[in-house]
């Protein structure tokens, strides 16, 4: 069949949405934004990896990865690196991803706070000594600060990538 007769699928921005250590308030705010934006977004965005919304997820050829939360362990760091390797751009979502806080509050614990209960958890689940913000582990291209994330800034960042990838 000649190529020009194939049905053309409009190019969409391929995104993933990921969560590490946090309250997931940014994901909840995203679900609020869906009330008003999902219909429009479905025309221009392919949600390839969103565990909150679907079971069949693929970590492959993402244009933009949006990542909330801070990094509590080496296994989380490895997971984040894998996301980075499979994404052209990576955006830190919310205060924990951008600054580590408040999820990284345990970094301030002195010896008196590190009681046996907490140390048991650290050992049992291989916590790293400190909680890290994303750019301490991988390159971060954009940030959406706020607790929860600032929705206006998220919309601007999304718009920027939609234009950059010539989707709109």
């Amino acid at each position: 069949m000649p190529e020009q007769n194939l049905p053309t699928t409009p190019k969409k921005l391929v995104v993933g949405w990921f969560s590490f250590t946090c309250c997931e308030g940014c994901t909840i705010l995203l679900s609020e934004l869906f009330n008003d934006y999902l219909v429009e977004w479905k025309k221009v965005v392919e949600f390839r990896h969103v565990k909150t919304l679907k079971t069949k997820n693929e970590l492959r050829d993402l244009d933009v990865a949006f990542v909330e939360g801070a990094i509590s362990s080496d296994s989380q760091a490895e997971e984040l690196k894998k996301i980075r390797e499979n994404s052209k751009f990576l955006v830190a979502i919310g205060a924990c991803a951008c600054t580590g806080r408040p999820s990284a509050s345990r970094n301030d614990f002195g010896d008196e706070a590190l009681n046996y209960k907490i140390l048991w958890h650290f050992n049992q689940f291989e916590y790293t000594d400190t909680v890290r913000k994303l750019d301490e582990v991988v390159k971060v291209d954009d940030q959406v600060p706020g607790c929860p994330m600032n929705a206006e800034i998220l919309l601007k960042v999304l718009e920027k990538y939609l234009k950059q990838f010539q989707i709109v």
Binding site: T21, C22, P102, D108, I118
Partner: peptide, 27 residues
């Protein structure tokens, strides 16, 4: 992974504690 927030608030003035602990959960 745990964030140990009930430990974090120990020693802190009560005024800021409820707002901090609301961060236990986004939903």
């Amino acid at each position: 992974y745990r964030r140990f927030y009930p430990q974090v608030v120990k020693g802190k003035p009560i005024a800021g504690v409820p707002s901090f602990l609301s961060r236990i959960c986004g939903t």
